[in-house]
Write a protein that binds this DNA or RNA. Structure first.
Lengths: 176, 176
DNA sequence: GGTGTCATGTAAACAGTTACATGATTTT
DNA sequence: AAAATCATGTAACTGTTTACATGACACC
C-alpha cells in the first residue's frame, strides 16, 4: 500500500496542490502516512511520469505559484483497478505490548501506574478521534453510499481505540 | 520502539543466538518486526557496542559455530528503565481503509465482494492467532503475573482482529 | 518583531525488506 | 535428489522521518 494510491484517490475527489494533499493526509485518521514533503512531492513527480496525473502551474501575486494536479483517465483506471484488488491485512504495531511483555520486573504499583498512563493516552486519543469525526474536514460526500463508507471508516478507527481502552481496563481489573 | 529493546527483553528471559531470536520474533504476534537477518545481526552488534549484552562463541561439530548472547547488568538496567518509560500509542496501519475510501466507484456486487474478501482474510488470520495462542511456543512463565501478562497480550491481538471482523460484518449489513 | 499560513522543494539519516552467500547435516 | 534446519552474515533497495532552505504576506 503506497502513498501514491492515497494521493490518486484524493485527486479523484478534487484537483489539488501538494500543499493541499499534505494537509488532507495529515488530517486524516486512516491515511497513516505522516504527509511529509519529501514523500508527497516525490510521489507527485512519479505520478506525472506515470501519466496518472497532469499539472497546471498557477502563478499568483503575493503568494508562491502553485501546481494544481489533476487525475487523468489513465490514473482513474489505475485507481479503480487498485480499489478492486485483494485487501491487505491491517498492520498493528503496538509497541506497548512489547513493553508490557517484560514488565514483570515492576512492582504492583509501578505496573498499575504504567497501565494507567497507557489508559490515559488511549482515552485522550479516542476523544481526539471522536472530535475529528465530528469536525470531518476533507470528507467527500458525492453519494449517500460514499458518505456511509467514510462514516464507517472513521468508526473503524474509533472502535479500534475503544477496544484497546476496554482491554487495558480489563487488564487493570485482573491485576488488582 | 526499537527492535533492540525486544531483543534485550528476550535475552532477559534466556541467553540466545541470533538464530533463536529470529525464530522467537518471527513467531511472536506482538513483536511486529519481520525478524530478518539484517536487523537482528546488526542490532546484536550494536547491543555489544553499547555493553548491554556479551557473547560467547560456541564451536560445534557438524553445525556452524554459534554466538550465545547474554544480557549484562547494564542491559538489564536499561531494559527496566525502558519498560517503565511512557507508553506509545499503537500505530494502526489499515491499508484497506484507504482502499475502501475510494470504493464508491464499484457497483454493489463488486463492493460486497471486496468486503467479503476482507472478511475472509481477517477471519482466517483471527483463527491463526487463536491457534498461535493455544500453541504458545516461546512464552516465559516465571511468575503467575508474567503468565497473566502474556495471556493478556495474546488476547489483545485477538480482540483487535475480532473487533475488525465485527466491523466489516456490520458494514456489509449496512450496505445490503 | 515573532509567529503562522501559503507553497515549493532537497539532503541526510534511519528503518525495514528482499535477496544473496556459505556450508554441513538431517529429513522427506 | 531435493528440501528443511542450523547458523552466520552482507548488499541493494525502498520507505519514512527530520531537518534544512526560500520567500512573501497577514496577524497579533
Amino acid at each position: 500500500m503506497s502513498i501514491k494510491l492515497a494521493i490518486l484517490g484524493l485527486l479523484s475527489w478534487k484537483p489539488s496542490t501538494g500543499y493541499d494533499l499534505k494537509k488532507m493526509i495529515e488530517d486524516s485518521s486512516f491515511m497513516h502516512w505522516s504527509g511529509n514533503n519529501n514523500q508527497i512531492y516525490k510521489s507527485l513527480v512519479q505520478l506525472l511520469e506515470d501519466g496518472w496525473v497532469t499539472h497546471e502551474v498557477q502563478h499568483q501575486e503575493s503568494s508562491p505559484s502553485k501546481k494544481i494536479y489533476t487525475i487523468t483517465d489513465k490514473g482513474l483506471a489505475e485507481l479503480r483497478n487498485w480499489v478492486d484488488s485483494s485487501p491487505e491485512l491491517p498492520e498493528l504495531k503496538k509497541g506497548f505490548l512489547t513493553q508490557l511483555a517484560w514488565a514483570d520486573q515492576l512492582n504492583s504499583k509501578e505496573l498499575d501506574d504504567l497501565l494507567s498512563r497507557y489508559e490515559a493516552e488511549i482515552s485522550l486519543h479516542l476523544a481526539l478521534q471522536e472530535e475529528k469525526k465530528r469536525r470531518s474536514l476533507y470528507v467527500p460526500n458525492r453519494t449517500e453510499r460514499e458518505a456511509c463508507l467514510w462514516e464507517m471508516i472513521a468508526e473503524n478507527i474509533i472502535s479500534s481505540y475503544r477496544n484497546e481502552l476496554l482491554w487495558v481496563q480489563q487488564l487493570r481489573q485482573k491485576l488488582v
